[in-house]
Design a protein around this nucleic acid. Sequence first.
DNA 1: TAGTTCAGAGAACGGTTGTTTACTGGATGA
DNA 2: TCATCCAGTAAACAACCGTTCTCTGAACTA
Lengths: 218, 218
Amino acid sequence: MSHSLGVRQAQKQKTRQALLDAALGLLEEQSLSSLGLREVTRSVGVAPTAFYRHFRDMGELGVALVEEALGSLHVMVRAILAEQDGAEERIDRTVAVVQQHVRHHPLHIRFVARERHGGVRDVRLAIAGELDRFAEEVAAALKSQPVSEGWRDDDVRMLAELYVDRLVTTAAALLDAEADGAEGAAEQVVRVARRQLRLISVGRRHWLAEGRGKRDTP
Amino acid sequence: MSHSLGVRQAQKQKTRQALLDAALGLLEEQSLSSLGLREVTRSVGVAPTAFYRHFRDMGELGVALVEEALGSLHVMVRAILAEQDGAEERIDRTVAVVQQHVRHHPLHIRFVARERHGGVRDVRLAIAGELDRFAEEVAAALKSQPVSEGWRDDDVRMLAELYVDRLVTTAAALLDAEADGAEGAAEQVVRVARRQLRLISVGRRHWLAEGRGKRDTP
DNA sequence: TAGTTCAGAGAACGGTTGTTTACTGGATGA
DNA sequence: TCATCCAGTAAACAACCGTTCTCTGAACTA
């Protein structure tokens, strides 16, 4: 893969990225369905009509932002689950990675949290699809752990979704905590998140002995 | 409390409610920050200026909608937690109540899910405050259960937040499931939610023996 | 009954929006 | 070198927005 993109294509991708960046910045304090095309182009410093050279409408830009924001999740899950430490340490590492991810990409996290149930259909679907893929990866990773021996596949999946939702919620809470002045707020969120994951982990270890059985083996 | 409201006040509250209802309906397919004042009044059939007799701006209407949507949560939690059945049956009842609540007030649920991280600050704060109160009630109810003996207060609170988040997430998922054609989708969401709550419940019962201790009693 | 209050109507304002149409001028490739 | 392509420009459009000001008439109060 050479860097031969041509001056033409290179410049185009440059302004395309500028549009994405400008939109992401403006979306810190409003939602996608209220963000205007002109607002974005004005922020970049190009003519309104230039927008159409890159996106059909704001919805399409939103979908592009989803890929940009959630594409890096996959390397993240691998980084976490590759570790061979104990469950306790892995939980701490997981929360730490989430916290540092929020610190490095606050706007992306904000965007996803906001538009996950937002007013633009295509964007909602894109986020749902991406989170679904993410949950599937987590499920695969969980399944290969010794603790999951004897688990039904859909139970593993159920657990994975529980984890994913918790991580997303934690990320959103961290964002609010770090934004809203209070000093120890972020640390408080981290501590609660750790204990919640730990409790889920405890439930996981006792699932087969106690949680199941009751319904399936009469 | 007599019904002496006066014809004047009665009529005013009537159109105020009409504005709220119309807004809630329009918010099914867009977010609050993109909903226009004129759009709402047009939907009701009154002049745009009449809006100001009831709300300063759309944000204020949004806050009113939050109270309307989340005010009924408190009777809900009491209804669920008042039951004296086993943990298993209580979980099934809880999910059933959530499902029926979603069916009866889909627009309210949609609104809360969407604006919880939406673009209007005051509305976000109102929702956060209401959910906080809700979590506090759940915590109080959990604390009075035998299983919580020996639990630290902030651990109970941590568990309560875990439950509340799960219920909110489940409600939103149910909404999407019932909207998006597929027949068994809602039932699938219900089954997963039940098992997730059950797993958390298992973790809860083994928390003191295994989850704690490790950190606090060396 | 006479005077006051006030929810809602009506018209007008300056400003912003998305989209169309026609254009320019530098990169591109034969 | 020269014709082609195409990212970005410029102007104009009708439609919509939030907000202000003035007015009306029915419900209130004294």
